[in-house]
Structures are given as C-alpha cells and as structure tokens.
Amino acid sequence: MSTARPIVEARNLKKRYGKTEILHGLDFTIPSGRIYGLIGHNGAGKTTTLNALLGLTNYEGDISVMGQDPFRNRAMMMNDVAFISDVASLPRFLKVRELFDLLVDIHPNFSREKANVFLQGTDLRPELKIKNLSKGMVAQLHLAVVMAIDAKLLVLDEPTLGLDITYRKRFYRRLIEDYMNDERTILITTHQVDEIEFMLTDIMFIRDGKIVLDVPTDEVGKIYTQLVTSGDNVAQADALAPIFSEARFGQTVMVFENAAIEKLTPLGEVSTPILSDLFVALMQRQTANPGDK
C-alpha cells in the first residue's frame, strides 16, 4: 500500500437533513492506487457519502480529498477528480463532437485524442446526438470522457445501473484495462457486488450511516470464514456463534468472524465468503458495528 498522502480522508463525517442524521460520524482513509467498493443497501448513506466527498453537499466533520476541502474547493478539486453518478447525466442536447469541443475548453485535463481512442471499436460516432444513444452507448461515452480526463480519483456511483450484462462487463473491463494504474484510485458503489468483486482491492460496508467494515479484500479471508455444513454438524457449528446462517439447497451456510479454522474444518466445507454473502451477513447482524455492544 502506498505511503504517500491519502487521496481521501474523512474524519467524523456527519450529514443531516433537517433533524435527521444520515451519516453518523464516518472515519475512513483511502490511499492512492486502490479500488474501493463502498457497499450498502438502499438508504444506507452511500450516495450521501460520495456527495460529501465530491463537494456536492455540505457536511459536518472533516474531509480532505487530495488535500482540498471538497465543499469549499469543489471546482479546483475537480481538476483531478472525475465522477459518474448516473449514466443518464450527459447533456442530451449535444452531439458527441460538440461535447468533446466544449470539454476541451471547460476541462483543462480533458484530451479529445484520448477520448476518441476510447471510442474506437464502439458504435459511437461524432455526429450522433446523445439523446439518440442507447443507455449502454451513453455509459460508454461517459466512461470515455472520464478516462480522457486523466483524473487521479474516479468516483462511480452505480455507474452501470440499468445496463445489460454485456455493457456492464465491458464497462468494468475498460476501467481496469484503460484507466487503472498505481497512481489512480477508484471509489465505486454498486448493488451488483459480485460483478466488481474481482477488481476491488478494498471494501467498505456501510449500514444505516455507519461504516461496518473497512478492510482490504485480501484480508477478508483472515477475518471471515464461511462454512457450508449439514446434518448434525449444524448444531455444533451454531454453537460457535456464526454471525450469519442461512439454509441453502438442503445445506446450511454460515459465516463466522475471527473464528478458529481448526474448529470449523471438521464440520464442513470451509472457505472465504464471497462479498455478497459477507454483505448479507453483516447487514443482517443485530449490531451495526462489530465493536458496538
């Protein structure tokens, strides 16, 4: 992990809408060169967190994005930050060529040449109007724009919402192949956790405005263990206090936190839980934070 200054630091981040507190004092740090998945159910506070990081809304607490206060210096910060928050947010009245013409003068780090390269092999043409493009083509165009900006931090909030599986896979493949390198950071939220699991270096689970998990993905296996068991072993495994248990096709799937592997191995098949199972496990446990009692 890089020892350079973190790309994002949030300390005691809170957000209220009226009297309702949405974010309850989040603390997290995102170093450069990582791909973070911010995962939570609807209404958990994912988008609010991203909006605060992007300076799109005011907040309480401290946030630093590449050394900048996002809300105070959003415009300056956006020289090095790009985001896609909704695939349909490109201005529909423009043609592809007109969009690039404008971006050349509006964004100092945008490269028309790079954008055109990213569009090669797609059905996108300069004279096409954005309002006539399919959802998948709009997503490709938006990704091309973002990748041509050469941003250090890319924030993606449900970027593939409404796209079919072909476009979703193509979107993430291009992201990894054409954008990501050691100096860049991606923060991504999505409901389709399984589809991005392969690319994530770190995961943050958010539940009811609190971070319930913030670990590198390669450490998930050190903390959480999944056991698939059946028959009499179920009762024995249950006695070891799983944080999640679910009957599946005649078997019982359990997830344990900081459990002794040697005690679980005799009871069934032991593995590292996939993110979607871990997510469900942590979202269903009674206390939001492992440390909370």
Partner: peptide, 16 residues
C-alpha cells in the same frame, strides 16, 4: 434535464 451532476463534475464553480 438531469445533467446537473455532469456539469458539477467539471472544474468550474457554480457561480461561473
């Protein structure tokens, strides 16, 4: 027209 977030992703202030 739902393009506010796109324009806000540009390094230009709302005042500008």
């Amino acid at each position: 027209n739902n393009s506010l977030l796109f324009w806000k992703s540009m390094p230009q202030s709302d005042l500008k």
